[in-house]
Design a binder for these strands. Structure first.
Lengths: 212, 212, 212, 212
DNA sequence: TATGAATGAGTTTTCATTCAT
DNA sequence: TATGAATGAAAACTCATTCAT
């Protein structure tokens, strides 16, 4: 005895099929964009890689732009959801920042296609850049700011610092590490850089007794 | 009585004319690329903005790619030459890093077209990115590394830090500030951010008595 | 007690349902073609306007062409059947021609979508034009010719005239009035033009005493 | 000794070359449109027929639409200029109308490609139809109206007739003859129909003693 | 019979680049 | 050196039609 009627089941399968195809095309697009670069990538290549007809791509995405946009927002939403879940159980805000940095690096290490799209292809034009800076990236930066501000309240982080500036500073440093890792042909671990980078972030470069 | 023969003068004027036109086209290209984005920019638009015929562009540059490449390398060479000159008279390596950061920001503030091309258009594809990372950017990073290493020798900067990592870390932070400034529609001073950013770089975010 | 068996009733309803849907699609097509033009009209728009699925259109019509063809032939057959019925009771052949012209105008006035399709969309290519000229239009012209020839037998119409030429001449004049009416944005009565046009047709433009 | 400087000559040749190529493409377009129909015609076919590259078509015409539009307006302007010149020396307005009709037919007979484009391809959509009805066709009808009105002043044509209606009536009749000629596969003379058609136009179909 | 998701053929137009002048 | 007319390759996207359900 089923808890679903036949019609309900059909509807559910329908939705699942759509979702699967949506993600198959998205994965294919990330792969092709990473290999050829967004502008040199052909939509028909994406379609072939996804195992669908050219026209089918356009049943799921408005246009080629939309593919790039969707790669970013889908992954970013995923990342942020998981990150929030993992971070909320960590009490120490400095530890939270360390974990966040590690999650950032691990996410990129986990999917090199996505990493290339994120670190390179997405930066191609102010059109995309502005759009992303003002939406999804803002939430990313907010997570950092919140931790920084809590650290300030607890006396762990210098009070006179602008949390906004600190957030950009950290993001910039992490982003540069990531871009370097993506462009480098040597195979090294990105997440292994978490500790040294966060050490610089927390303690600066100066000797304890140095005067900068 | 001239120290140059007529023929020599003609040759010199000739060279100057070439140089002027070369730079006129380059400036026009930076302007058009900044406004429309590299991919949407038309070579004929660049030619019109430079006041030359379409074909003339190809007497000075191999192709459209070469225009982008040349904008970068010409400006970067300029910047590095001037920076080296200004930095070699500064004895304190930490002060040298501060000045370098300020010069970086000022150069971008000085020419917004160039700044847009640097921070956005140039990042469009791994093809450019890899090329730049391994050549001109390397020299930029070297200036930082040298100062860091001297700071370490003088006991101003922690000895156990990898100078390479520190250089990337600083570049990443500065680069992110610059990108933010370019994309922001608010008109604020980028160079005014030198001090707060370098403070973070030198001293980190932690309270003196904090344990990160 | 029914005179039809259940099965018969079902069959009849079935036929009616088919017929209704057939005409619903045809009306929708006329509407969409009139609004967007045949080439710019989408089959899926027609389907939506008719309240059926895209595929259903193909259960009733071979293809998009067939829709256009069917709009013409269905309406033309209708018109000709009704016209013949109304004309056969009119004895005077000249009066018959007048009535025919009026019926022609009234039919177009009655359904503007159809009028646009007839006067404009149908003329789009020699493929359609040749097909129509040789079939349905021929019957239309035949009605005129028969009346003209009877008029000639009765001494009402000049004997030396070629009835074929006269039929084309009249059709051309009526057709031009109709096209003008369709394209004009002013709202005037087309059928009100019957009398003046038929006066020209019967009496020519010359003054009775004029020498042309 | 030349009356033109070299530079002037070059400029003149330049203009001639442009004009020649413009007309070559236009003739090619008329030919291809006549053969395949406007919608089924490929721009690359037109280019090949004109002996130029695909892109060259777009140096002379905005787009495919513009090609069709230009075929019409160029020919129509030509026709109207020549017609006006030939008609102004004819005193009798009725004779002028006869000559005009003959010129109309002769122009079409003279260039079958053009005739097909005029009678069929141009009628394909209200977009074109409305545009033409309100511009160039208006001038055509004006020539008829002027002759009719002069005929009325001279007592040759019935005073009570609307010259506008008469003009449409005549145009419609001539147009239908032309369309028939274009669609007919028999090879007959169109201009030979001038007399019989104009007889109908001037005298109507009724017997002198007939009562219509 | 009805559906509508999937297909994939098909074409205009753009624009970097060349080359005769 | 400079010009700019000519080239022609190249690709995103649409939409009529099909067919599994």
């Amino acid at each position: 005895m089923s808890i679903h009627s036949n019609t309900e089941l059909t509807a559910i399968n329908e939705v699942e099929r759509r979702t699967e195809k949506f993600h198959a095309i998205l994965r294919a697009a990330a792969h092709v964009f990473a290999r050829s670069g967004y502008f040199n990538a052909r939509v028909s290549e994406v379609a072939r890689a996804a195992g669908v007809a050219d026209g089918t791509v356009y049943l799921y995405f408005r246009n080629k732009d939309d593919l790039l946009r969707s790669i970013f927002s889908t992954s970013m939403q995923n990342f942020l959801r998981q990150a929030r879940a993992q971070l909320e159980v960590i009490d120490d805000p400095c530890e939270r920042l360390r974990r966040f940095a590690r999650l950032h690096f691990e996410a990129l290490e986990d999917n090199r296609d996505m990493a290339i799209v994120f670190q390179v292809e997405l930066r191609q034009s102010s059109k995309f850049m502005e759009e992303f800076s003002t939406t999804q990236l803002a939430e990313y930066l907010l997570i950092i700011r919140e931790a920084v501000e809590e650290g300030q309240r607890r006396g762990l982080i210098r009070n006179q610092l602008s949390s906004k500036l600190v957030a950009k500073f950290l993001f910039g440093a992490l982003d540069e590490m990531a871009t370097n890792w993506v462009l480098s042909h040597k195979q090294y671990s990105l997440s292994a850089m978490t500790e040294p980078v966060m050490d610089l972030f927390f303690n600066g470069v100066c000797s304890t007794d140095g005067v900068a």
